[in-house]
């Protein structure tokens, strides 16, 4: 009995010790500016999105989104500290304030976005993905139905796990999930033949396949099990920071729509300055209107962002385009006027 009591007391002390976060109620936006560095949570293991290169730097679409935030908030896209996080760690890392924001292949869902759930707020979607299944070509599996009674390798603690269950359950097909904690293990389990198929977001499947010895021996099935809109996220109670994040992403999309690129940004600024009648452009670039101040940024934040990372299309081409290591057709990720779904509300 005495041992039980002392155990529980010890447990309580341990728990309370862990939960002491700072009690600063002001926005993290100020904290980031004062620190002169943005702490960004990434995966670090997904080629094309966030991947550690041999020289120790991170590269990918998620990484460039972090850089765009840093350019907008601090004025320097290199002032970012990347923290590699597992799927299970990522939300706690935001809640405890270990990171400022998350840019890590995170699916935008109701329970994650709500105060009653994970208590986060999502920025606009940066990549529209969907969950898929990859199988070996020689297995002659062509659809979900062929996978009945087979084992499927899944990453645990993600929406992936729930989606695969929903898909098989609604088709009344029995299956065995083999759950691993991270994608590398899922890949190892699949390649070693423990499972007939591996499942993940289609972008991640494509990225993983690019590292296989014989990428052509593996096919991604046509079945798309879910909508996976991937978006950056931050603490749901910090509206100032989430406002800033939201409009930085819209600025990337809007810049692509207006044809403003990393190369021609200086030229466009000059044009806007010379022509007072180009009101929307002047507001967008912060020459008129003082829009940046309203979201806690400098008025010229769009110029800083575009001159360091380029617009959304340029970021996409760099990491996921036809000439990149992980080519993924743009599909839904095109602008709304080119058959995709990316659209920016007006900068008014």
């Amino acid at each position: 009995m005495r041992r039980l009591v002392s155990g529980i007391v010890g447990l309580a002390a341990l728990l309370t010790g862990c939960a002491t976060t700072n009690q600063d109620n002001s926005s993290r936006l100020n904290l980031i500016k004062n620190r002169n560095e943005l702490i960004c949570g990434v995966s670090g293991k997904i080629p094309g999105f966030s991947f550690l290169k041999s020289d120790g730097s991170y590269q990918g679409l998620d990484v460039d989104i972090c850089k765009a935030f840093a350019a907008a908030i601090i004025g320097d896209s290199e002032k970012v500290q990347f923290r590699p996080l597992t799927a299970a760690e990522r939300f706690t890392a935001i809640k405890t304030g270990e990171i400022d924001l998350l840019s890590r292949n995170t699916t935008f869902t109701l329970s994650r976005d709500s105060l009653g759930g994970n208590g986060l707020t999502f920025a606009p979607v940066v990549f529209h993905d969907g969950q898929g299944l990859m199988v070996k070509k020689e297995s002659r599996i062509n659809s979900l139905k062929d996978l009945a009674n087979k084992s499927i390798c899944v990453g645990s603690g993600t929406t992936t796990e729930q989606n695969i269950n929903d898909a098989f359950e609604s088709a009344s097909l029995p299956y065995t999930p083999i759950k691993y904690q991270d994608l590398n293990q899922v890949v190892a389990g699949y390649l070693q033949g423990r499972c007939a198929a591996m499942t993940s977001d289609r972008s991640q499947l494509a990225a993983a396949r690019s590292g296989f010895k014989n990428p052509k021996e593996h096919i991604i099935l046509d079945d798309v099990l879910s909508k996976e809109p991937l978006a950056p996220a931050s603490d749901g109670q910090d509206q100032k920071l989430s406002d800033a994040m939201r409009w930085v992403i819209f600025s990337l999309i809007s810049a692509e729509e207006q044809g403003i690129t990393k190369v021609n940004i200086d030229q466009k600024v000059q044009i806007a300055k010379d022509n007072p009648q180009l009101k929307p452009l002047r507001r967008f670039l912060g020459i008129d209107g003082g829009l940046g101040e309203k979201i806690g940024l400098s008025n010229d934040f769009v110029i800083k962002v575009i001159s360091s990372t380029g617009n959304y299309g340029e970021i996409y081409e760099r990491h996921l385009g036809q000439n990149s290591d992980v080519p993924i057709p743009r599909g839904l990720n095109e602008l709304y006027n080119k058959g995709g779904v990316h659209i920016s509300p007006p900068f008014n």
Binding site: A87, A88, F91, T92, K95, S111, R112, G117, N118, G119, S156, G157, T158, E161, Q162, K179, Q181
Partner: peptide, 13 residues
């Protein structure tokens, strides 16, 4: 492992 999944689904770490 099961708690790990539950934490991610419910946010109840």
């Amino acid at each position: 492992a099961i708690n790990d999944t539950i934490i991610n689904q419910t946010g109840r770490a």
